[in-house]
Amino acid sequence: MTIADIAQQAGLSKGAVSYALNNKPGVSADTRERVQAIASGMGWHPSLAAQSLTTSRSNAIGLMLQRPARMLGNEPFYMEFIAGIETIIAPNDIALVLHMVENSEREVAIYERWWAQGRVDGVLLVDVVLGDPRVEAVNRLGLPAVAITTREAARGLPHLWTDDRAAMTAAARYLIRLGHKRIARVSGLAALDHSVVRNSAFTAAAAEAGLDSATIISTDFSGEAGSRATRDLMSAAAPPTAIIYDNDIMAVAGLSVAAEMGIDVPRELSLLAWDDSPLCRLTHPALSAMNRDVSELGGQAAEMLLTLINGGHVEDRESALPVLIPRGSTNAVSP
């Protein structure tokens, strides 16, 4: 169905029909209403491809993740994050271009190609590190971007941030109040901005409480890495009595390792996961977790980016603080 078909049915020129359908001056209100009624009855819908030619818009935003594609289906965080993005962009007929890359250099190269070819109108930056080359790249290109990171790492980009320092301090103090004097943290990639903040807060909380030990092991967020880290920790001469994991997948893997090694959770070992998910509630015992609305986080990021693309002013925004949800995997230290 084309404008020419509608023009023939309405007995008008294609130009007049175009004015009516696009709510432009040049036709009367009665004509506009009649044309729109005819178009609706004929099942006509505007062509996004044609609109993009006249507006220089692609009607798409980009999101790149630096991880193997096979991990995406196993990572509840990004599934919920993408779902939140879609709740905002789908009603606006905007598409999400999702791409998996190996490193920042490859990501920058794709941004350059996307922007030169008009493939996207803007991008969301995730997993940001201090001094991240992607921040400089989007600024250099003039590519609208919103970063999910701290002010220091965003370096002037509009950004959405979470107070990971306060959240990690609350998580560590919870375990300390349960009587744990040897705690450990299985972190994600050490260079990530939120890893740096959480590691610092974890170490500070342990020092403040005068703990016997507070160990940090950095991983790649995978279940395999979480399993290895847990085995290493629990094979030490003085193993921890509590572990905080940087995601739900590693926490579930750690729970399996505890069962494999004959360690009772939570009587001998307490486990706490970051970013609550259905996985945490399906284990036995259910995993205590730091809970936040990840879907809302994705929606907020998408709202900020669309405002930026449309020429609006975007204020940096703080997302809701993660809330500790105690479940069966944490307990007071046995006397």
Score class of each variant (00 low, 15 high):
189 L>T: 04
147 A>K: 02
100 M>G: 03
154 A>W: 11
112 E>Y: 08
119 R>T: 15
148 I>F: 14
116 A>Q: 11
72 L>K: 00
96 L>G: 08
110 I>A: 06
127 D>N: 13
189 L>Q: 10
98 L>G: 07
144 P>C: 08
105 E>C: 00
103 N>F: 14
147 A>Q: 02
120 V>K: 03
164 D>Q: 07
135 V>Q: 04
147 A>C: 06
71 M>F: 04
73 G>V: 02
194 H>W: 14
153 A>I: 05
119 R>Q: 13
78 Y>G: 06
165 R>S: 13
69 A>N: 01
86 E>D: 11
85 I>V: 09
149 T>Y: 14
86 E>W: 00
178 L>P: 07
191 A>I: 01
136 E>K: 13
210 G>V: 10
162 T>P: 05
72 L>S: 04
138 V>S: 09
149 T>Q: 12
129 V>Q: 15
154 A>P: 12
181 K>V: 14
92 N>W: 00
86 E>G: 03
137 A>I: 05
177 R>E: 15
78 Y>L: 04
195 S>G: 09
115 W>S: 13
175 L>V: 06
70 R>C: 00
110 I>D: 12
114 W>F: 13
100 M>I: 00
196 V>I: 13
121 D>K: 03
96 L>Y: 01
199 N>H: 10
82 I>G: 11
77 F>V: 06
85 I>C: 09
170 A>C: 01
156 G>K: 01
100 M>F: 11
167 A>P: 10
208 E>P: 11
92 N>C: 09
115 W>D: 12
